[in-house]
Simulated assay, not measured.
Amino acid sequence: MGYTKRFFAISYITVAFSLAVGLTVPLSQRHDGHQHTARATCSPRPSGLKLPAPGDTWNYVLHNPIANPSKIDTTIAVWGIDLFDNTAATISTMKGKGANVICYFSAGSYEDWRTDASKFIIDDLGNELDGWPGERWADIRIKNVRDIMISRLDLAKSKGCNGVDPDNIDGFNNDNGLNLKEADSVDYVTFLANEAHKRGLTISLKNAASIIPDVIDCVDFSVNEQCHQYTECNDFATFIKHKKPVFQVEYPKGDEVNNDKPVSDSVKKSICKDPTSAGFSTIIKNMNLDNWIQKC
């Protein structure tokens, strides 16, 4: 489906890179000992954005379009849904029910089933994503890829999305085949944030814990998968300290089990009462992100 990906061939590499204007971004030392780029420079956030708040309830449905938008659970404030699969009418109806609608798309990969797949050229593409047929890493440094993403942001605006959730911006953590580095993702997230804000859209940082210190000023919230499972929630707590929400989803059933059965009370408690994720908006979902949800 092109989401909920986790890969662990991680290699943190000391890098230096130049911005498009030709200025070298200095490297500095983070508390964990890894080198990283200086905090990104972002355009001022415009007024009028529908900003989600820490503690907002949320749901994440990407497996299928929202079937009955007029009957959504109105106790859920924020909805993450697929940009391509849902219509402007669906989004308008959801917003009319009070929903803050965040539209998902993959910003760092090519998916051969998307309606704009023909816009990619072979030079844009790297290795296949392990376990995701028809999907390949995209070179986020290339103008053509960025132009495609600008068109997707335009689509999000035209459909009436309140914000966007761009996935797969962490190619540097994976066997991408493009020699992508952490600094490339910092630059790319900054680019996406500035372009989203120009269009009146809020924007997430999806996963990518290691670049949080570099882009925290650019993005509006975090969408995190499995920080409890992988003992990473402390990294994402940075958002809470900056008064920005963390929308956390855990998949304790694993990637092969998708059903409507709740997890045990002990499993739910271990996730929902994890002190390292205090203040997060946490839900339990099937890995395929269908309609089933277990709320904390």
Rank of each mutant, 00 (worst) to 15 (best):
F8L: 06
A9I: 10
Y12H: 14
F17A: 12
L19V: 02
T24L: 14
P26W: 12
L27R: 15
L27S: 14
S28V: 10
G33N: 06
Q35K: 13
A38Y: 12
A40L: 08
T41H: 13
R45T: 00
P46Q: 09
S47P: 04
L51D: 00
P52W: 06
P54F: 12
G55V: 07
H63N: 15
N64D: 07
P65W: 14
P65D: 06
S70A: 14
I72E: 02
I72T: 08
I72N: 02
I72D: 00
T74E: 07
A77P: 02
I81P: 05
D82T: 01
D82Y: 10
L83Y: 09
F84Y: 14
N86H: 10
A89G: 07
A89H: 09
I91L: 03
I91F: 14
S92P: 09
T93N: 03
M94T: 03
K95C: 07
G96V: 03
A99E: 01
N100P: 06
V101A: 00
I102P: 02
C103Q: 01
A107N: 00
Y110L: 00
Y110H: 04
Y110I: 01
D112P: 11
R114A: 03
R114I: 01
D123Q: 15
D123F: 11
D123C: 08
D124V: 01
L129V: 14
L129D: 01
D130H: 13
R136Q: 09
R136V: 00
I140W: 02
R141Y: 14
K143H: 10
N144V: 04
I150E: 01
S151E: 12
L153M: 03
D154Q: 07
L155P: 02
A156C: 06
G163F: 08
P166N: 01
D167E: 00
D170L: 02
G171T: 04
F172K: 10
N174L: 11
N176K: 07
G177A: 04
N179H: 10
S185G: 10
V186C: 07
Y188V: 02
V189Q: 03
L192W: 03
N194C: 00
K198G: 06
G200R: 14
G200H: 08
L201R: 03
T202M: 00
L205H: 00
N207G: 06
A209L: 11
S210K: 15
D217P: 04
C218A: 12
F221I: 04
Q226H: 12
Q226N: 11
H228Y: 07
Q229R: 14
Y230P: 02
T231S: 15
C233K: 09
C233F: 07
N234W: 13
D235S: 14
H242E: 04
H242D: 02
K243S: 09
Q248V: 00
Y251S: 05
P252H: 11
E256F: 11
V257A: 05
N259D: 08
N259F: 15
D260Y: 13
D260W: 13
K269S: 11
K269R: 15
S270F: 10
C272D: 02
C272Q: 04
T276K: 13
T276I: 08
G279C: 05
N286S: 05
M287V: 10
N288W: 15
L289K: 08
N291V: 14
N291D: 13
